[in-house]
Design a protein around this nucleic acid. Structure first.
Lengths: 346, 346
DNA sequence: TGCAAGTTTTTAATGAATTTATAAATATAC
DNA sequence: GTATATTTATAAATTCATTAAAAACTTGCA
């Protein structure tokens, strides 16, 4: 079965392609096409099972109705949820999603950006791995609409939808302190230039300071993105051993926490008795683990809803100078059982 | 900054668009374009930061270099991993991915199929939710290349890459039997027409038969896709209560197992002492849970590698009648700690 | 000088849909 | 019955890159 084009319908009805296009786009009345002709066109379209070629349409209209989503790894449960939310909101407005994983690799992200531009995406949602806004600024110069999600550049004028990572880190750490812990470690992940991670760490440090707990550099571990399990194992051993004697830990990333819990399991450590834990990102695993893991949850649905809306608005108003959308959402500390039970806070 | 087209470069160099196209596609020498002219074109392209419009290219070539992936839910960790693998293999060949979630909803899948065809995807990877091959056959009639993954229609001539679900179900159940359990339940999910689930159940039943264990209909539970948690809770209570007194369970789907483990956690049940468990799909959670969950792992990388290869081959040989690719991969039982320790099998 | 052969470049068509400008047909007014 | 409006329809241009066919220009050699 060969492809059916506008011209086939036109031929069948013995009218012009123009007319068919107008009718099928619901502008038959506006252009004053007679009811009878419209009916014929609709029937022929039905008969041939006509489906407009969106590529040709896109070319003519200068619009692909596609948006690109760049994340570090779509198989990370956090980003998988983000992708799902974005897919749902975007499809409501007739947009499709091309999802790409950058693996926290700058070169790869540059290549992805280039490729998505070539594909004429109408806009981009980016959880960027860049350390400077240089490459992102070049998008602005090309006036390609985009919204940064999850990570942003504080001193650069862009749209972004993020969460208050500082507050997340602060609240998480303070919760551990309130549970009576003072020897509190922090595990984070590379690349370490990411604002989100820096802010979480700053929150951790400020919470300790507020409660007059000395900052111990040995308590802050950087786990490399490419080799998580082995390094978490090693760091954990070292943190627990004398003279560190760490009692609690705030982990800034769900990948690390997953590896951490695997270690805890293998080492038969008891949470929270031997080590208490708060993690960033609330993934399904945390509710299932015994004991259930206290976590800083990101409002995923709000992130998706707001970022898609901001992007589609920007696409719609392309050309006009509208102020940038800057949304900072609130994380929520979900208190479960991994920090101890001394005194809980509502 | 306005978009740069081929014609802009042509104008700048005072040559035709044709020449520019030939040079930029690396066929300058083949067409005998002088080195000097080629150089000028390259420089102009560089200067203007020219990026070919893939939509125009796609229109001319009748090819979008895009493939569609339809799964029930991209935020399910199994499909998220599949998506990641497919993304990687497809991008190696210059293809992009449009990922769509069908929510196990037939109407939605039909709409997605329609939309992807309109977008002129070159091919499709489908984990279909259809109960009959009717809609899928219509794809064949339109000669749109596709490969079914994870689920297929046994009596329909299509490409597919699946795993031996019967064997998975059989092995899992037999393992429970070997661990000394006889009162073994099975939990599966709707829609219940899916071949993958039917095969897993058949494996369960045959394993019981082989070991002369009576099949108890009450031990087989169907959990509805839309309301998992509540139903798992109820069914589990009932299975454990007298007169059922179930000792072990084989769960056919990771979503259910996740909900199941949540219940186990809340009800403070001990695995495997009070209930032993084997699950399908090996997700990160299972290694982290205490005790670690024995699971039937699907060879995700092989599924992705084979299905993408089959699809790209079919796209390449479009028109020619090549035999369908039918690949059945082996699942692997990963024995951990959730079934008991009586006697382990290598 | 003239023609064939080879080298280099261009014209025009193509793909499918949309937009603009224009034309034809019909209706109404005077 | 002619002029003006209104209704209905179409041709041609546009989007951009690619390709087949054709043309323009060199060079060699008789």
């Amino acid at each position: 079965m060969k492809k059916v084009a506008l011209s086939d319908i036109a031929e069948e009805c013995k009218v012009s392609k123009t007319l068919v296009s107008m009718v099928l786009n619901g502008r038959g009345d506006a252009y004053g096409i007679s009811k009878e002709t419209q009916m014929r066109v609709f029937q022929a379209a039905e008969k041939f099972n006509y489906k407009p070629n969106q590529i040709a349409r896109g070319l003519r209209l200068g619009k692909s109705n596609t948006i690109g989503l760049i994340v570090s790894d779509i198989s990370n449960p956090f980003y998988a949820k983000i992708a799902r939310g974005v897919e749902d909101y975007a499809s409501k407005s007739g947009y499709n999603l091309i999802i790409c994983s950058s693996d926290e690799n700058v070169e790869k992200e540059i290549a992805l950006l280039r490729m998505l531009k070539e594909r004429q995406v109408d806009g981009l949602l980016i959880s960027t791995t860049f350390s400077s806004s240089k490459e992102i600024m070049s998008l602005m110069r090309e006036s390609l609409p985009f919204v940064l999600i999850d990570r942003f550049f504080p001193h650069t004028e862009t749209n972004y939808v993020i969460i208050d990572n500082y507050k997340g880190g602060f609240t998480a750490t303070e919760h551990l302190i309130k549970m009576g812990h003072t020897r509190i470690a922090h595990m984070t992940i590379t690349p370490n230039h990411l604002t989100s991670l820096k802010e979480r760490k700053r929150g951790y440090i400020d919470a300790l300071k507020k409660h007059d707990i000395r900052i111990n550099k040995k308590f802050i571990c950087q786990i490399p993105y490419g080799d998580i399990k082995k390094n978490v194992y090693r760091e954990l051993r070292s943190l627990l051993a004398s003279p560190n004697n760490v009692q609690a830990i705030f982990i800034a990333n769900n990948n690390i926490t997953t590896a951490f819990l695997e270690c805890v399991n293998e080492m038969k450590l008891r949470i929270p008795h031997e080590i208490a834990l708060v993690s960033f990102d609330d993934i399904a695993l945390f509710k299932v683990f015994y004991p259930q893991i206290t976590a800083v949850a990101q409002p995923i649905d709000d992130i998706c809803k707001n970022s898609v809306k901001a992007l589609l608005d920007e696409i719609k108003n392309k050309g006009t100078e509208s102020p940038k959308v800057k949304i900072v959402l609130e994380p929520e500390l979900i208190i479960r059982e991994s920090c101890g039970y001394m005194y809980r806070k509502g």
